[in-house]
Amino acid sequence: MIVLDGVSRAFREGEHARVVLDRFSGSVAGGERLALVGRSGVGKSTLLNLIGGMDRPDAGRITVSDTELTALSERDRTLFRRYHIGFVFQFFNLIPTLTVAENLHMPLEMTGGLTPAGRRRAQELLERVGLADRRDAFPDTLSGGEQQRIALARALVHRPGVLLADEPTGTLDTATAEEVLTLLDELTGGGRVTVVLVTHSPEVASRMDRVLRLGSDGG
């Protein structure tokens, strides 16, 4: 369950402050899959970063899985993120100096889950995303679609309660995007993971349980 209560966030732009979110309130039920849509600059990614604890609101409260993020220190927010949240970015953002398997092991290692069971889960996920044969490859040798599939597996390998995805298919062609979305459905469907996904694509949005359109007034 994610609850946002009167959340505001503004960014400094030169001498002026640009208000991106203004007293925004809303919630996402546990296991719900929400699509955030809206024009560029309305605060979709900002909202995602706030829910992920990567950014702090100027005002308001954010609660994720009964933890009030806005009451936590930066370090505690980071640790919360480590255990409870998975991220998928538009540009994949795999660690270029780690192999595919190692990228998947990273969240496990950080959460103390790199046990034989954890490794088995990573291997299963690799098989699920169809890239078990590339486990020892470095990310830069993979195609965009392959990288995003690995990124998805990495975001879920440590079983977070929440998956945040920022335009996960934004840079992919239609066929590849379809592959990634199918995988997303498979891995997060059935109420196992709460998903907040930012997208510009109505097709992508329509695959989620609910669509929230952010207006240019920041709410």
Binding site: E74, T78, N93, L94, I95, P96, M110
Partner: peptide, 15 residues
């Protein structure tokens, strides 16, 4: 910076 930001997003603390 970006690579490090991903690590931070994945839950690595500043320290």
């Amino acid at each position: 910076a970006r690579e490090y930001a991903v690590l931070r997003a994945g839950g690595m603390t500043a320290r």
